[in-house]
């Protein structure tokens, strides 16, 4: 007598009368969820450093909170170090937050259509904010000249 052990996921084992909402899709292999999980942990640790560094430099160093104005931001973004710092903060915070909301949608949206549309809105918002933020960090010009007129800014060099 031979023992026939059926391969898992064949769906033939047991009574086979599992309600459809409990059936798992057969596709979706790959390691995306693993990397998403890993990214949350790593980006979280890096963000703690980036955000508290950001808060310390902005609110504690020098004149502290009273020193923050347009010129302060312009000065920071003139330095490639702070450009990179803010860029890393923007990207990591946005991807970290987006992935968090993605998992919440996966956990709580009950209908496939609801889940799809919530994710479309989420990803669209993420792309807009990340692209816009990146553009601002790299193309920021504190002393724009509009129609030949220098906009006010005490720190700008005379035209």
């Amino acid at each position: 007598m031979s023992t026939d052990i059926q391969t898992p996921r064949s769906g033939k084992i047991g009574s086979g009368k599992i309600a459809p909402q409990y059936r798992r899709g057969t596709g979706s292999k790959g390691n995306f969820e693993m990397f998403a999980w890993l990214f949350m942990r790593l980006s979280g640790v890096v963000l703690v450093v980036l955000i508290f560094g950001h808060l310390f430099v902005n609110l504690m160093v020098g004149e502290g909170i009273h020193g923050i104005d347009f010129g302060f931001v312009a000065g920071k973004w003139a330095d490639p170090f702070w450009q990179f710092w803010d860029l890393a903060m923007l990207w990591l915070a946005m991807l970290h937050g987006t992935n968090g909301v993605r998992t919440i949608i996966n956990d709580y949206a009950e209908k496939d259509a609801t889940r799809l549309w919530l994710k479309v809105v989420l990803y669209a918002a993420t792309v807009v904010i990340v692209v816009l933020g990146t553009l601002v960090i790299f193309t920021f010009n504190p002393c724009p000249v509009v129609n030949g007129v220098q906009l006010p800014g005490g720190f700008c060099p005379a035209p």
Binding site: R24, G25, K29, N31, E33, M34, W37
Partner: peptide, 9 residues
């Protein structure tokens, strides 16, 4: 268990 519905949920 590395599935979309596996341990990562």
């Amino acid at each position: 268990l590395n599935d979309k519905e596996g341990v990562w949920r």
